Amino acid sequence: MLPETEAWLRGRTSSSEDWPLPRLLEAKADTRVSVVLPARDEGQTVGEIVSAIRRELMDAAPLVDELVVIDSRSTDDTAARAAAAGARVVAQDEVLPDLKPLDGKGEALWKSLAATSGDVLVFIDADLREFRTSFVTGLLGPLFGDPGVVYVKGCYDRPLRGVGNGGGRVTELVARPLLNLHWPLLAGFVQPLAGEYAGRRSALERVPFVTGYGVELGLLIDLLELHGLDALAQVDLGRRVHSHQSTDALGGMAAQILQTAWSRLERQDKMIPLHDPSPRLAQFRRGADGHQVTVRDVAVAERPPMITVPGYAAPAGG
């Protein structure tokens, strides 16, 4: 690990316990906080998360000003449960409706910039189980504690059923090797693909958002380039429990993350591409007549910095 990365790891890593609620309330001043949950078919979990944030960080203490669920074309009762629990629910495709709709989690996150008014945005995945509001307070801590910090990633232990602390397979097999190889300054991030993170609007609206599963990697690389390592931080949130995906699904995620990295390497003049990356992923399963191939499109789309989009009105002070 680079010496500057080691120094960053010591100086910019904290724990959620380091940021108690009374300290945050004192530091909040007139900063407006929006918590965003991108959600697609998460009816089983979204209500509990929304209820906890509403109860502990809005009704009992005025830390969160806005709680928004971006409903990404759910076919279950995600929207109804989120609204009943106290969130404002926004349909993804109704935000900036003049734009052609795109698919993916990153699209919902990008659209949330236009659907919220906070100076600071906190993103929380909607499939979490055993959710604790210290996820929100922990992520806000470094932003409230140092005006030089613009982006905070969560890190945690990720239990995988049957093998203990073995979650985060795409992180360990794809994302971490990529970062160590090409962006070693980012090698200190424990969970570079974490779905829980927070940032200042003034930073988030000035970087592109990959619409698919490469969004977290892309944000990390682009914000490093724009603001430098010392403007980034991470917070240990303890333990994160959520549903795990199949190996086939993880293969698609990995492919999109690799394409996201490819585009950044090309953009930053770190390679001279001899060909365009293939948007197709072939995967195999054994059938009655031997191995059968399934080919699917894993192309990665990208939204431009929100600040450049006609129709986007950044909140005053954002």
Results as ranks from 00 to 15, higher is better:
residue 192 P to E: 03
residue 254 A to M: 02
residue 247 T to V: 15
residue 262 W to I: 08
residue 186 L to C: 06
residue 222 D to C: 01
residue 181 L to Q: 15
residue 187 A to F: 11
residue 251 G to H: 13
residue 236 D to P: 07
residue 268 Q to N: 04
residue 255 A to G: 07
residue 238 G to M: 04
residue 261 A to L: 15
residue 188 G to A: 06
residue 212 G to Y: 00
residue 183 W to I: 11
residue 224 L to V: 03
residue 209 F to I: 11
residue 206 R to K: 12
residue 247 T to W: 14
residue 256 Q to T: 05
residue 165 N to Y: 11
residue 257 I to K: 01
residue 213 Y to K: 13
residue 205 E to C: 12
residue 238 G to E: 05
residue 219 L to H: 03
residue 211 T to G: 03
residue 267 R to T: 10
residue 192 P to S: 03
residue 248 D to A: 15
residue 224 L to P: 02
residue 250 L to P: 07
residue 220 L to T: 01
residue 168 G to M: 03
residue 169 R to T: 10
residue 269 D to N: 10
residue 209 F to C: 07
residue 271 M to W: 05
residue 237 L to T: 06
residue 243 S to A: 15
residue 198 A to F: 12
residue 178 L to N: 08
residue 180 N to H: 14
residue 243 S to Q: 14
residue 162 G to E: 04
residue 234 Q to P: 15
residue 180 N to R: 15
residue 271 M to R: 07
residue 240 R to M: 14
residue 216 E to R: 04
residue 158 R to G: 05
residue 210 V to S: 15
residue 221 I to R: 00
residue 269 D to R: 06
residue 263 S to R: 13
residue 180 N to C: 14
residue 184 P to T: 05
residue 239 R to H: 12
residue 177 P to K: 09
residue 185 L to E: 15
residue 227 H to Q: 07
residue 263 S to A: 12
residue 269 D to Q: 08
residue 236 D to N: 14
residue 165 N to E: 12
residue 189 F to I: 08
residue 256 Q to K: 01
residue 173 L to V: 13
residue 257 I to S: 08
residue 232 L to S: 06
residue 228 G to F: 01
residue 155 C to A: 15
residue 156 Y to T: 10
residue 200 R to V: 02
residue 204 L to Q: 00
residue 179 L to W: 02
residue 165 N to G: 11
residue 166 G to D: 02
residue 216 E to A: 08
residue 228 G to I: 04
residue 172 E to K: 10
residue 191 Q to V: 13
residue 194 A to M: 09
residue 209 F to H: 09
residue 241 V to N: 14
residue 203 A to Q: 05
residue 265 L to Y: 03
residue 233 A to L: 08
residue 156 Y to C: 10
residue 234 Q to L: 05
residue 253 M to V: 13
residue 258 L to G: 14
residue 182 H to P: 11
residue 229 L to C: 06
residue 207 V to W: 03
residue 211 T to D: 05
residue 200 R to Y: 03
residue 171 T to G: 08
residue 191 Q to T: 15
residue 222 D to E: 05
residue 201 R to C: 07
residue 266 E to N: 09
residue 201 R to W: 03
residue 177 P to S: 12
residue 208 P to K: 02
residue 159 P to F: 02
residue 160 L to W: 04
residue 266 E to F: 01
residue 203 A to V: 01
residue 171 T to K: 08
residue 260 T to V: 09
residue 204 L to H: 00
residue 236 D to R: 10
residue 226 L to Y: 01
residue 231 A to L: 07
